[in-house]
């Protein structure tokens, strides 16, 4: 009983600790006194700049990082379960690239209407749906390419994802050339950043992880069963085609929203679910929830690093996650080959 209590409280306290640290750390030092003063509405001791920074920049940034990290981790979790492969993640299967092309197209179109896309909640809100469509298209293509006799092999998946990402990057570059005046923002998609994001961005992205999370709440058993292969899943009572499509849709939705608001951030979807699976086991009922929690925390931590390592200059957060996730991915590839290659051949 006590163990369960600790198990429930521990992750929450970690989240609180991470958030608190992120609020306090930054290129602008904010002291505990500042925070308390703000909370206690005693604004005499706090400079107005500090207050503005906490409320309008740092807090929404932390909230956004949590939402984006949670979305990407969830998306990775779903893709890994769906594709029966621990090496799947939105970046590797090309979903992030698809989302960036979709978002770029949206930004271009909005620009043609003479509006700056970040100007209002309305224009900002138009981008995620386009990104979602781009991500969905990419995921469907990668899945079809990698599938053979109902099995999705590691190599085919990686190849499909790499090929897709290359093609999509080329399309993105083409859009950049066509876009002339509007082209600069498109470059940022490749790097990922939470700089200068406000509550407007949080609101624009919020519906998607909420909807996606709700859609996945009842799907943990399905994701577990899918690990046995499509034939067996059907025999156990799962409408595989329908569930597959719904899960792909959800993964694309989560990825699209994340990319739309912060650019392409690599490896979070790979790293988080995989580490959690190693520690806590593959059961999706706990894996999905933990992915949200730890994905969010991880992104907050990565973003805090990105904005403080070279302060006041900011590194794109995608670089921090890639530096963490890239080597890990290579290590996994080496290890998983031994462990599962023999199994699936048996």
């Amino acid at each position: 009983m006590l163990k369960r209590l600790i198990a429930a409280v521990l992750p929450l306290s970690v989240v609180i600790a991470v958030v608190a640290a992120a609020v306090a750390i930054g290129s602008v030092p904010i002291t505990i006194r500042d925070i308390l003063a703000l909370v206690g509405r005693d604004s005499e001791g706090v400079t107005s700049a500090a207050a503005a920074i906490i409320l309008t920049l740092r807090l929404p940034r932390i909230a956004l990082a949590f939402l984006v990290g949670a979305s990407l981790a969830l998306s990775g979790c779903v893709l890994q379960g769906l594709l029966r492969n621990p090496l799947a993640d939105p970046y590797i299967v090309g979903a992030s690239s698809g989302a960036s092309v979709g978002a770029a197209a949206a930004i271009l179109l909005i620009g043609k209407c003479g509006v700056s896309w970040q100007q209002s909640l309305w224009s900002l809100g138009l981008v995620p749906p386009f990104a979602f469509l781009g991500a969905l298209a990419a995921v469907l293509v990668a899945y079809r390419l990698a599938r053979n006799d109902g099995q999705v092999s590691v190599i085919a998946l990686l190849l499909a994802g790499v090929a897709l990402s290359t093609v999509l990057s080329a399309i993105l570059t083409l859009l950049i050339y066509i876009g002339d005046e509007v082209n600069h923002p498109l470059i940022y998609w490749l790097m990922g950043s939470f700089n200068n994001r406000g509550w407007r961005h949080v609101l624009a992205v919020l519906p998607y992880p909420l909807v996606g999370g709700c859609a996945l709440a009842a799907k943990s058993s399905v994701l577990d069963i899918l690990a046995l292969g499509e034939t067996k899943a059907q025999q156990l009572g799962v409408d595989v085609e329908k569930e597959k499509f719904r899960l792909l849709l959800t993964a694309a939705l989560l990825t699209g929203a994340a990319v739309a608001v912060s650019g392409v951030i690599a490896f979070t979807g790979l790293l988080i679910p995989h580490v959690l699976r190693l520690i806590y086991g593959p059961g999706h009922r706990q894996l999905l929830v933990r992915s949200v929690l730890w994905g969010g925390c991880f992104m907050i931590a990565a973003d805090t690093l990105a904005r403080t390592l070279l302060r006041p200059v900011e590194i794109p957060v995608g670089i921090v996650t890639a530096l963490c996730g890239g080597p890990f991915f290579l290590y996994l590839l080496r290890r998983e080959q031994d462990k599962y290659w023999g199994e699936s051949n048996g």
Binding site: V28, A49, A50, S116, E181, N196, R307
Partner: peptide
């Protein structure tokens, strides 16, 4: 790529927009 926070805390007296993005 300057942190927006740092810009705000330095409190510039003048802002020059050297682009057509906004």
């Amino acid at each position: 790529s300057y942190s927006a926070e740092a810009i705000l805390s330095k409190n510039p007296a003048y802002i020059v927009i050297g682009h057509s993005g906004q």
